[in-house]
Design a protein around this nucleic acid. Structure first.
Length: 596
RNA sequence: GGUCCCGUGGUGCAGUUUGGAGUGCACGCCGGCCUGUCAAGCCGGAGGUCGCGGGUUCAAAUCCCGUCGGGACCGCCA
């Protein structure tokens, strides 16, 4: 790899003892200046690393400041005895400067770039000056890793004959899913483009094209509230294949994921295990279980079937055991109640198992003798443990206890932070009731797709999914890593009649379906092949690989929680002229009132 | 839409519980000294409307209300 071009002959970090005696010209930034008055040392940083430059002319060295951009010519020399710096890859050599050219001065920095300790600069400041933040080796490394991640996936896919296709980012608003970002259409006032939430429909059309295998690093947009792992715009590695079954897509997914984790020196044991959605929910209370630790949920519905304790007279009662939890103070146990309330639960019932096996706590007093006698055994609790209970609908209990399980994992330090636990979650339900909450159901019999409307039912449910939507399973698969969903996909519906029946279950009339997906239904008329695919959450994967706590760290110019770009101050008002031209304020004729 | 935490010179913090003069620490910045440092060292200096608004009080960084910004979470995210 040649790195010597243009204004320089070498790059700082690539110099070594082999260069001793060479005259070199380097370009870079002043990472540190140590001026002894007579001799001064400059740590010169460029993309490749840092090398120490020695300047003996005080008049030259004195004006230099942090982050000045320099061009330095000098001779590479062995450092004097005893002056090696073992912390620096170039620590045995230095460059004796003969000329130092200041290419550009730098203003005093808004925050320290070169830090000696891990003092955390606030995200707000770092992202406002992201171009300075990314000068820091640690920050820059995540961006470089992301490039390597792209390259590794691309290598796998191109080697398999995949075709990379760019799909539109100005497209049509489609129902279902998240809120769209919309863009006014100047030439058709009152009409709007939508930014894609995913290239889903286009990639299916590409299968109709006969491309056979497609991929794209696709930017996606969803106008929902943000989180540490959610940005308004994000990236998916989007993949679709023709004439495949579930196992083919899963096999490809495993090869990609293996190639990615190989970048950080981890070999994923293949094949990655599979767990059904039902089993994941039953054992872990989650469709994206963190398998780095045990602690499984226990079903107590039968156990408390005849209980006289009102709280446990519920459709579903579950439990999860906190190892050693019996020693928690009353204050900590009260904290769990607040924790549960923050999640919309009434509280978190608990029973403490004493060292002598005796059950303690307010709940224990309400249980019958027989209930008390077998409870620890039923839940698998040992003396000294704490058993947490949830009671209510199965869905709410699983959600609460699943979250409690994760919290237990954290508090009891059961999670091996260096571990990687992958699993496929398969056989998710095809539909779920539109309103499966503890509230009164809104429209009875209304179903919505768990994945999306184009997911095929499993072959064995193809005939019955519309007569028995509740038990139909989807031909879908999610890949989960350490409790994070890092990818998901499905075998799609390729038959128009099946697609129409799915729309019907979802309550979409033929007219509505025609209006919203007419182009897709039309396309399905012309020999649509069986196909399926997967999309990986690229930001999340990069964050996992780089150990970042937020996907913001792996995005070059991220936004804050409010969707605000601290660097450009977007979004921002536009001028009246722009408003007029864009047709933003166009008021449609009141022809129909179908707003909903 | 909801819950919780945070906001103090350029940066990171302490000070807030129990009101008493903008008090302190580390880094950075400016000036000076210094020929082997690498978190260089030593001496001196500058820099603040304690996010903003209102209230309570003789007195508010501190207590109360509101608001803005940031962060975490719930709802939401096919």
């Amino acid at each position: 790899m040649t790195s010597a071009v243009g204004l320089r002959t070498h790059r700082s970090g690539e110099l070594g003892e082999a260069n001793i005696g060479d005259e070199v010209t380097l370009c870079g930034w002043v990472a540190k200046r140590r001026d002894h008055g007579g001799v001064a040392f400059i740590d010169l940083r460029d993309a490749s690393g840092v090398v120490q430059v020695v300047i003996h002319d005080e008049a030259v060295a004195h004006p230099l400041r942090s982050e000045f951009c320099l061009r330095v010519t000098g001779t590479v020399t062995r450092r004097p005895d005893g002056n090696d710096n073992p912390n620096l890859p170039t620590g045995t050599i230095e460059v004796e400067a003969t000329t130092v050219e200041v290419l550009n001065e730098a203003a005093p920095l808004p925050f320290p770039i070169e830090e000696h300790e891990a003092t955390q600069i606030s995200d707000e400041v770092r992202y406002k000056y992201r171009y300075l933040d990314l000068r820091r080796a640690e920050s820059a490394q995540t961006i470089r890793l992301r490039s390597a991640v792209n390259n590794a996936a691309r290598t796998v896919l191109l080697g398999d004959g995949f075709v990379e296709v760019e799909t539109p980012t100005l497209t049509r608003s489609t129902p279902e899913g998240a809120r769209d970002f919309v863009v006014p259409a100047r030439l058709q006032p009152g009409s709007w483009y939508a930014l894609p939430q995913s290239p889903q429909l286009f990639k299916q059309l590409l299968m109709l094209v006969g491309l056979d295998r497609y991929f794209q690093t696709a930017r996606c947009y969803r106008d929902e509230d943000f989180r540490a792992d959610r940005q308004p715009e994000f990236t998916q590695l989007d993949i679709e294949m023709s004439f495949v079954v579930e196992d083919d897509v899963i096999a490809l997914g495993e090869r990609i994921v293996s190639a990615l984790w190989a970048l950080i020196g981890y070999e994923i044991p293949l094949p990655i295990g599979r767990i059904t959605y039902a089993e994941a929910m039953r054992r872990y209370g989650s469709d994206k279980p963190d398998l780095r630790f045990g602690v499984e949920l226990v079903d107590c519905t039968e156990y408390f079937a005849g209980t006289s304790f009102g709280v446990f007279q519920a459709a579903h009662v579950g439990a999860v055991v906190m190892p050693g939890g019996a020693s928690q103070t009353r204050k900590v146990l009260d904290g769990w109640q607040d924790w549960a309330k923050a999640r919309g639960a009434k509280g978190l019932a608990y029973v403490l198992v004493g060292d002598d096996g005796e059950l303690k706590g307010p709940v224990a007093k309400n249980l019958s003798e027989t209930e008390v006698a077998g409870l620890a055994d039923h839940c698998g609790a040992q003396p000294g443990d704490c058993i947490f209970f949830g009671a209510g609908t199965e869905r709410s209990v699983k959600a609460l206890l699943g979250a409690a399980r994760l919290e237990i994992g954290k508090r009891c330090e059961l999670i091996d932070e260096s571990a990687w636990a992958f699993t496929w979650v398969v056989d998710a339900p095809l539909f779920e009731p539109t309103s499966e909450t503890d509230d009164v159901a809104v429209g009875a019999g209304a179903w919505t797709a768990v994945h999306h409307a184009f997911t095929s039912p499993k072959p064995e449910h193809l005939d019955t999914f519309d007569t028995d939507p509740g038990s139909a399973l989807a031909y879908a698969y999610d890949i989960v890593c350490n409790g994070n969903e890092i990818g998901g996909g499905s075998i799609r519906i390729h038959r128009r009649d099946v697609q129409e029946r799915v729309f019907e279950v979802m309550g979409l009339t033929p007219d509505e379906a025609e209006e919203k997906f007419g182009f897709l239904l039309e396309a399905f008329k012309y020999g649509a092949p069986p196909h399926g695919g997967i999309a990986f959450g690229w930001d999340r994967i990069c964050a996992l690989l780089s150990g970042a706590s937020s996907i913001r760290e792996v995005i070059a110019f991220p936004k804050t929680g409010g969707g605000f770009d601290p660097l450009t101050s977007a979004p921002a008002p536009i001028t009246d002229a722009q408003r007029k031209e864009a047709g933003v304020d166009f008021v449609p004729e009141p022809t129909s009132t179908t707003a909903s």
